[in-house]
Amino acid sequence: MAEETNQGVWGLVIDLNLCTGCNACVTACAMENNIPWVGEEDAGYGRSMSWINMQRYWEGEYPEVSPSYQPVMCQQCGRAPCEPVCPVFATVHSESEQINLQVYNRCIGTRYCANNCPYMARKFNWFDYAYNIPEPMNYYLNPSVTVRRRGVMEKCTFCVQRIHDGQENARAQGRAVIDGEIMTACQQACPADAIIFGDMTDPESQVSQALRSQRKYVLLEELGTQPKVTYLKGEGYYGG
């Protein structure tokens, strides 16, 4: 049994050259991670629960106006500003998965982590949204993911349930995890293949190859948060 080999560092690369802004990742994430909808009023008020913010910025003036899209989810910072401020260790750094973890049941709802997240990647359950899903629509809820109740913060987990599944399968078969075997829901759905997920320590993995691109940048690098999500600039906006 391949026990206790290096678990690797999970990383996500989003190629903005390929992203069309179609929002399939947003929906896929919601379907995989039991993210409830909040209704028109709350959604418009800024309480939408989607873990991916598809940010759309306009540049220029008509007719030279052009949009740029940037899906922003939890950046899984290495030095996450959200973590130390939680009074009860509800958001912590997972050493074995090298991601930033939200322990729903430990959360008491101070919302400090969300204030301190420069990426605005955290979402709060203002009401029992998920528990109010009418029967039988709650049948599709994913049993691998905790259904969050009111007063709890949540955010992108890099589909840690899928990481666990993949690792568990590999361990049961006595082998290492193969690159590409573990896919996040957004990556799996992305029709443009703009999202790449994998082990950043493996130099051959797709993620590592993508990370060698000159186009790479991380969001708000000046804050020193060491995100695990890397963006590749859209080529239309890139000189080289």
Binding site: G78, R79, A80, P81, C82, E83, P84, C86, F89, T91, V92, H93, E95, Q226
Partner: peptide, 17 residues
């Protein structure tokens, strides 16, 4: 004890500290 003892009882990493 609280500052230096309890983190040893159940080590939890936060924010790269």
């Amino acid at each position: 004890f609280l500052n230096f003892g309890t983190p040893l009882l159940y080590p939890i990493q936060v924010g790269g500290m």
